[in-house]
């Protein structure tokens, strides 16, 4: 490898991905926790507790923001990187994607580390909030809630396990899904340099679709839920959390939160099933499209077909994988 070559630069970016993420996160956290939140305002009675609470909130906010941005970027970059795999007749697609996946794996691990850091921070914050930062009455209420929740331990475990699985496996599932989506979208490109744009477009469209499904599904669900709960202003109110969780009489918020969490966990299950099932389907579709594209090109003599995908002949496959996907 020549010094300063494209391959060397790519390798540097790949290797530097994890340390750079760690360094950026630590720098941001230090800046926010030590520089921005350095002094408690004069009206605060207990400055030490106030500073601790503020720093916990800011740390979690910074980590959540970084998580969101990095997850979004991971999807875009992996889709764009998978786009050049849509070349040839589709026979080598699996091998091309394996090579590309190896190149992008580090980014998924970086996002995983960020998520792990958020999770650790969250657990620490919950422990601190429930023990150190709360008064005796709140601590008693928390204790009562935990005791009441023990009766529905199956649901609590279900919610926690689905949430954890989605949170920690999310980057890898997203990487797999985005690469398959990027490859499929790239088969629609007319020219070679248009593949990356198609892949990015497909990824952003998938993001938009997700947000829209969340908005419409949530709104429709809320309207239906509220209408069943109380159809008219004069009718009696049906409290679903009391119907499903009669033992949770400690606080109405806990029952409602548990019901809401179960709904979210079920939606997350569906989302994860989609992320697992759709990539093989996309790849099969991409392979079929590539094969048909090259057949069509052969039939029309590869002279005039504005819709044809460049590099779909058998010649491009023999040029070698490395040259094609670079």
């Amino acid at each position: 490898m020549r010094p300063g070559s494209l391959r060397r630069r790519r390798r540097l970016v790949r290797l530097g991905c994890l340390p750079m993420t760690c360094a950026l996160t630590v720098c941001l956290l230090l800046m926010v926790d030590l520089v921005v939140i350095s002094k408690a305002p004069p009206w605060v009675i207990n400055p030490r507790d106030y500073l601790l609470g503020q720093r916990i909130v800011s740390t979690l906010s910074v980590l959540a923001g970084l998580n969101l941005v990095s997850t979004w970027l991971l999807g875009l970059i992996s889709a764009a990187m998978a786009a050049p795999a849509a070349a040839g007749q589709g026979g080598l697609l699996h091998r091309r994607l394996t090579i590309l996946r190896r190149r992008t794996d580090m980014m998924a691990w970086a996002v995983f580390m960020l998520r792990l850091a958020f999770l650790i921070g969250f657990v620490v914050a919950v422990i601190l909030a429930s023990t150190y930062l709360t008064d005796a009455q709140s601590a008693r209420e928390i204790n009562n809630t935990i005791v009441a929740l023990r009766q529905y331990v199956v649901w609590v475990v279900f919610v926690l396990s689905v949430g954890l699985a989605h949170f920690l496996l999310g980057p890898f599932l997203r990487l797999r899904y985005s690469m398959a989506l990027g490859t499929l979208a790239a088969t629609w490109a007319r020219l070679r340099d248009g593949r990356i744009w198609r892949a990015i477009m497909a990824r952003t469209a998938a993001n938009l679709l997700g947000v829209v499904v969340l908005l419409w599904g949530g709104s429709l669900g809320a309207i239906i839920f509220a209408t069943i709960r109380r159809p008219f202003s004069r009718s009696a109110l049906i409290d679903f959390h009391r119907v499903f969780f009669p033992a949770l009489t400690v606080s109405w918020d806990v029952g409602r939160m548990l019901l809401f969490s179960i709904g979210v966990a079920l939606a997350l299950c569906l989302y994860m099933i989609g992320q697992l099932v759709l990539p093989p389907f996309y790849l099969r579709l991409a392979r079929r499209r590539l094969a048909h594209g090259s057949q069509g090109a052969k039939q029309s003599g590869r002279r005039w077909n504005p819709k044809q995908i460049e590099g779909t002949s058998s010649q491009s496959a023999s040029k070698g994988l490395a040259a094609d996907i670079s």
Partner: peptide, 10 residues
């Protein structure tokens, strides 16, 4: 198109 979709979703 990608910019529009990205801006709209975010």
């Amino acid at each position: 198109v990608p910019v529009l979709f990205a801006v709209a979703s975010l």
